[in-house]
């Protein structure tokens, strides 16, 4: 405490920075680093009936997942289901939340009510959300059926989560409902930093709403959009698990058997811990690919210029 900030700053920033980072690093290394390394180790092992056989088989589990006749078809199916879900869920969340954010940005009365309402889905815990939608979709007593029937849209109660063509979208709908607010807030934050004068200038040029959005708003919003895409992709690949667990359990057929669900089954139902761990690593790699695409494809130069300017 005898040294001034200035002195410390100049003398050994690195040591000082690491001293500050130490607690955070410790948490992450102990609770994530160690289990992560351990799970990579597990993925190299051979298991039979829940017990390691003692053979280290290195990448055989990975190879099995990609080529064996028993696992590979399920893996590819799950991969496809996961990609379908992720693309639709991320796109829908981004479009809907951007739309809502633009409306909130209009700064009209009732704006606050909208913000407050948005807090609700965000505040609902995942498992509660799954239970709630399960009850809404119920094919025998559910309120969705009841409502559509009352209005006259349907003649007979129908099933969403029991229909292979609809089940994934039923899950996606419940998922989107919960995750729209999160991104909306991020977009509102982004929009609020765009000066009103920019819009006024654009309106002077008599540009239409769509043109203003495309030429002015969207480019200025790009960094936020990137952030939302990254976060939402990570979420969409993982956070749907509770919904699958409660609503469909991977069915009907393989229609909702996502990678997260398959990993859960491999590890905990089939006690194939090695294969489960290997699949989890592959899922992480998929995320990295997605994130790389976002960061590179969406204007890398512009982005780096912006962050440097900030």
């Amino acid at each position: 405490m005898t040294l001034t900030f200035e002195q410390r700053h100049h003398r050994n920033t690195t040591a000082f920075a690491y001293r500050i980072l130490l607690p955070s690093l410790a948490f992450v290394l102990i609770f994530i680093g160690y289990p992560l390394v351990y799970s990579i180790w597990i993925s190299f092992q051979d298991f039979k009936y829940g017990v390691p056989t003692g053979n280290v088989i290195w990448f055989r589990n990975f190879l099995d997942i990609l080529t064996s006749s028993t696992v590979a078809p399920q893996f590819y199916n799950s991969l496809l289901v996961t990609l379908k879900f992720t693309v639709v869920a991320v796109a829908a969340v981004v479009i809907i939340s951007l739309g809502i954010a633009l409306i909130i940005n209009e700064r009209f009365r009732g704006n606050d009510l909208l913000k407050l309402a948005l807090l609700l889905p965000y505040a609902i815990p995942g498992p509660v959300n799954a239970v709630m939608w399960n009850w809404i979709y119920d094919p025998t007593f559910g309120v969705l059926n009841g409502l559509l029937y009352q209005v006259g849209f349907i003649k007979e109660y129908f099933t969403i989560t029991g229909n292979p063509d609809l089940a994934l979208w039923g899950i996606a709908f419940a998922y989107i409902w919960k995750f729209v607010p999160y991104s909306t807030f991020l977009f509102v934050a982004g929009l609020s930093t765009i000066p009103q004068s920019v819009y006024e200038a654009a309106q002077m040029d008599c540009a239409g709403t769509w043109r203003i959005f495309r030429k002015v708003t969207l480019p200025l919003l790009m960094p936020v959009l990137q952030m939302v895409l990254v976060i939402q992709t990570i979420f969409a690949l993982l956070m749907h698990f509770g919904l699958v667990f409660v609503l469909t359990r991977g069915g009907p057929g393989n229609a909702t058997s996502t990678l997260a669900w398959l990993i859960y089954n491999e590890s905990f139902t089939f006690t194939q811990f090695g294969r489960g761990a290997a699949m989890a690593i592959m899922l992480s790699l998929i995320m990295i690919v997605f994130i790389y695409l976002y960061l590179v494809v969406l204007n890398p130069e512009k982005r780096s210029a912006r962050t440097q300017g900030a």
């Binding site: 094919p139 025998t140 007593f141 109660y157 099933t159 989560t161 029991g162 229909n163």
Partner: peptide
């Protein structure tokens, strides 16, 4: 049998049956 049986466990069947369905 309705297609919704793909979305019903024996517990769901129980509730529908005791409702006279």
């Amino acid at each position: 049998m309705p297609p919704k049986v793909m979305d019903m466990t024996a517990v769901d069947v129980q509730q529908a049956f005791k409702n006279g369905d």
